Amino acid sequence: MPNLERFVIEQSAPGERMDVFLRRRYPAMSRMAIQRLIEEGFIRVDGRRIKPTHTPRAGETVEVEWPEARPAAVRPEPIPLEVLYEDDHLVVVNKPPGLVVHPAAGHESQTLVNALLHHCAGRLSGIGGVSRPGIVHRLDKDTSGVMVVAKTDTAHLGLARQFAARQVAKVYHALVCGTVLHDQGSIRAAIARHPSHRKCMAVCEERGREALTDYRVLERLPDATLVEARLHTGRTHQVRVHFQYMGHPLVGDLVYGRRANRRLAERYGFDPPRQMLHATQLTVVHPATGEPMTWEAPWPHDFDETLRRLRAGPVIT
């Protein structure tokens, strides 16, 4: 791929920083990685070096020089992967529950990235940085399902643009507490960082970012509902927060639905091992061929087993 990318800013963004502006354009990159590229002179405006705090102005030409990918500091590990599709440009996997996507504090190994480095023999896009090679989007540790990973920088940029432009179709299956009354509906509620619990998100119309989830009921159970959710935005914890907002937190989600899950556990005599959320389907346009592609991932065993237990009805009435 060309090492240099240029684009013209179409609209000024007063009050916004350049690193935040570019984070929206390149969502696969962390803000820290963008700041590092700016500070090292790889990102310039009208040919001159800037600071991350530079205000984007209409008509400015932004140059992004992608540096050669450094060898990953993360070690390959022979962790089994369920590969749904693979070619020279990307690999699609069914991520199991409990697997962290990329190394971070407390999870320096045994991550999806470690597994991918082994599976792909190190041939992954370097744009995400040494700790996130190939990673274009993420699933929570305890969320399972379809993930697409870029093997080349060209594929990485192409996929990242689709995610940023909301051109990716994302379908999830979830078990939620209680009976969802309407057969289908939409949840439009802005999401922001929780004001006091910094690892959590919350609905906040004043300072939140737009979030839209469509849903339909697949099956009603005695004390829970199996739903399908289609995400039109990609906010952190979006499905979990939106269904909590509806009064139906996810089964097994002790972060957003501890009280409801405590009642469920008392009636059914078991505790689900995680939040029952599975990314069942993903549709993107292939970044090299331009063809739409859809992949589906079957439910993992714990999702099936939890559904079976809930279908059987409560043991304590």
Rank of each mutant, 00 (worst) to 15 (best):
G269H: 02
R259F: 08
R49D: 13
L221F: 09
E296S: 14
I50V: 15
L157W: 14
R57W: 03
H182M: 05
T154A: 15
V241M: 08
V203H: 11
R263P: 00
D223L: 13
P67F: 10
F303H: 01
R188T: 13
P67I: 11
V284P: 01
V176E: 03
A164C: 07
V284Q: 02
A288M: 07
S12Q: 09
H194L: 08
S144V: 01
M293E: 07
S109C: 08
P76C: 10
Q184L: 07
Q275T: 03
H156Q: 14
R36A: 14
A58L: 00
L226V: 06
A28S: 14
V241P: 06
L112T: 01
A58K: 14
T233R: 10
L157T: 00
R193C: 08
L307D: 00
A150K: 07
V20E: 04
E266T: 12
M276W: 09
A202S: 15
D88G: 07
V74D: 04
A150T: 14
K95H: 13
G15F: 00
V74W: 06
R198Q: 12
I316M: 10
M18Y: 03
V92T: 04
A115E: 12
A58M: 01
M246F: 03
R207W: 06
M293L: 10
R262N: 07
R309I: 06
G185E: 11
G185L: 08
L212N: 03
V20M: 04
E77Q: 15
Q281H: 12
A260D: 13
L264V: 09
K170W: 01
L226K: 10
A69F: 04
A169R: 13
R161D: 13
Y245A: 06
A169V: 14
E16P: 02
E305L: 06
A190H: 11
H137D: 02
T283S: 15
V176P: 00
G98Y: 05
A165T: 11
P222Y: 11
V64P: 00
M293F: 04
A229G: 05
Q11L: 09
P2A: 10
E60S: 00
T55Y: 02
T61Q: 10
G122N: 05
P80R: 13
L157S: 02
